[in-house]
Amino acid sequence: MKSLMLSVLCCILLDSISMATPVPDSVYARLDTNAILLGQQVKLKITYQGNTKSKLVFPTVADTFSNLEVVERLPIDTIVKDGGSLSLSQTFTITGFDSGYHVILPFEFLMLGPKQADTTKLFTQPLLLSVQSVPVDTTKSIKDIKNIEAVPFSIWDHLGWIILAIGAFVGFILWKKFGSKLKSNQPAIVQTPPIPCHEKALKELDELNKKQLWQNGYYRQYQTELTDILRTYISERWDVGAMEMTTDEILVLSFIPSNEIDGIGYVLRLADMVKFAKGIPHGDENIRCMDVTRKFIKENSDGKIELLEKSV
């Protein structure tokens, strides 16, 4: 019993001593396997173990080293063990495309001290990786590249389009069925053909005549309305801004027939006298103005009628 108690005590003591003893700093590199085929991938793991308080610098592994290529690099993994020791490791997936034996040179870890002289370097052991070529059976004929393999059809991949197509089809059927009914409920829009400018002007002249303006002493209003009808007709007939033109400017318009200039010149100048000089025209002058304007509109409307008929 005493010996048992002593041995248990010794074990506990030894264990506590071993736990208290600091783990020495060590670094190592390991490969999953030492031999791969061309292009095959292998994991390389570099590890540090120890209790260092100083700053540790992991080795910088280039994308290509020792004729081997890094395919993937994982972040540094840190494990804190019981007793405060650290284990830092980084795993790389590497591959080789050159057959032969490739020596993976030692990786250098730096432990930076407070001073430059305190900096220590640790190196992993070198590794040997054998990359072997794939054996080719030269006795067999060379085969062509394989065709692209078809992806197996899955209805779930096309479900959205199918629903959309069904929805559109249903919508079209509904529109065909009820759309015409809705349309028939709306009041029909009757499109009236535009009234030719000469017809409009002649109608306005008739209306002006009916007003009996000059007969009742409204000479000014009569002449103003008469010339407004004439100017509007010229504007619409030849597409010019006759409403913004003076009498002189209208009379020099190239498209006014030369035999009409005297006539409409008489109308416009007389209207100017009435409008701007308090002129009082005689009754026969007012009648003559109406006749000249009516004649001018009638005789110059042919082209416009033709154009309108063609456009309709």
């Binding site: 003076t246 009498t247 002189d248 100017d272 701007f276 000089a277 308090k278």
Partner: peptide, 10 residues
Amino acid sequence: RGYVIPEDVR
């Protein structure tokens, strides 16, 4: 002329 017409203004 004893009165102004738009031509005079222009």
